[in-house]
Simulated scan of single mutants.
Amino acid sequence: MTAPRFHRILLKLSGEVLMGQGQFGIDPATCDRVAGEVKAAKLAGHEICMVVGGGNIFRGLAGAAQGFDRASADYMGMLATVMNALAMQNALEKAGVDTRVQSAIPMASVCEPYIRRRAERHMEKGRVVIFAAGTGLPFFTTDTTAALRAAEMQCDALFKGTSVDGVYDADPKQVPTAKRYDTLGYNRVLADNLKVMDASAVALCRDNDIPIVVFNIRDEGNLTAVLGGHGTSTIVQNEPVSA
């Protein structure tokens, strides 16, 4: 299957991607490798913005399960995403990619506040914009943030970089015979609870007709390959209407 070409994309990474082979925190070598992937995509002519989760440092839901107030835990998770955004900014700037971090929680000494029109101008000037601190509100995941920012930035697609090469009908790490889907409809994902992203994020992408491309970011060169239609991925999109 030949994947469609996308010009402006939002790249969503889980915080766990930045751990590399570790169990916690940020691995600089992994950040540098991901930055190289983003730079290659930029050189191929794509406009890119990013959302990075915070699960490698602190996850709000996990904190709430351990007794933290849910809202406080979510704010702690948002601050973790700022740390990851700054780590990615550092790696991208070292690679020669102009970058801006915008936070939904104002912290002027660290990064810019999130302003949609300013973010659009940065992207038009060729900069990678990294959106941090989620939506700035508790009870919303970084998946939902990614879908929201993709809609606001009028992205052609939301690329979700994970540790698997697409969406399967079962966990491929547990079920060797699991089948990978080339394409899926949003409604199928929601009805079968396929865990592509959380339900509100999938619904937001569906309502704004933003394809979700799930691929393995851990395979070197895979982002550029998938963008070029050569890599392995699953595309979640609106199903064609029958005549």
Rank of each mutant, 00 (worst) to 15 (best):
P4I: 11
R5K: 15
K12H: 10
E16M: 03
Q23T: 09
I26L: 09
D32P: 02
D32E: 15
R33A: 06
V34F: 08
V38E: 07
K39Q: 14
L43N: 11
L43P: 01
A44T: 06
G53S: 07
G53Y: 12
G53A: 09
L61N: 06
A62C: 03
A62R: 12
A64H: 12
A65W: 01
G67H: 12
F68L: 15
F68G: 01
A71L: 09
S72W: 11
A73F: 11
Y75G: 00
A80E: 01
A80N: 01
M88C: 05
A95T: 11
T99R: 06
R100M: 04
V101F: 13
A108M: 05
C111W: 05
E112V: 00
R121A: 12
R121S: 09
K125W: 09
V129P: 10
V129E: 10
I130T: 06
I130Y: 08
I130A: 05
A133G: 06
G134L: 12
T135M: 13
F139N: 13
A150K: 07
A150I: 06
M153P: 02
M153G: 00
C155S: 14
K160R: 04
V164T: 04
G166T: 02
V167F: 13
V167N: 09
V167R: 10
D171Y: 07
D171P: 08
Q174W: 00
P176A: 05
A178Q: 03
A178T: 02
K179S: 01
Y181K: 06
D182L: 14
L184Q: 08
L184T: 02
N187E: 15
A191H: 10
M197T: 02
A201Y: 13
D207G: 05
D207W: 08
N208K: 15
D209I: 01
I210D: 05
I210N: 05
N216Y: 11
R218I: 08
N222W: 06
T224K: 15
A225R: 15
H230A: 10
I235A: 08
I235Y: 10
Q237G: 04
N238Y: 01
A243Q: 15
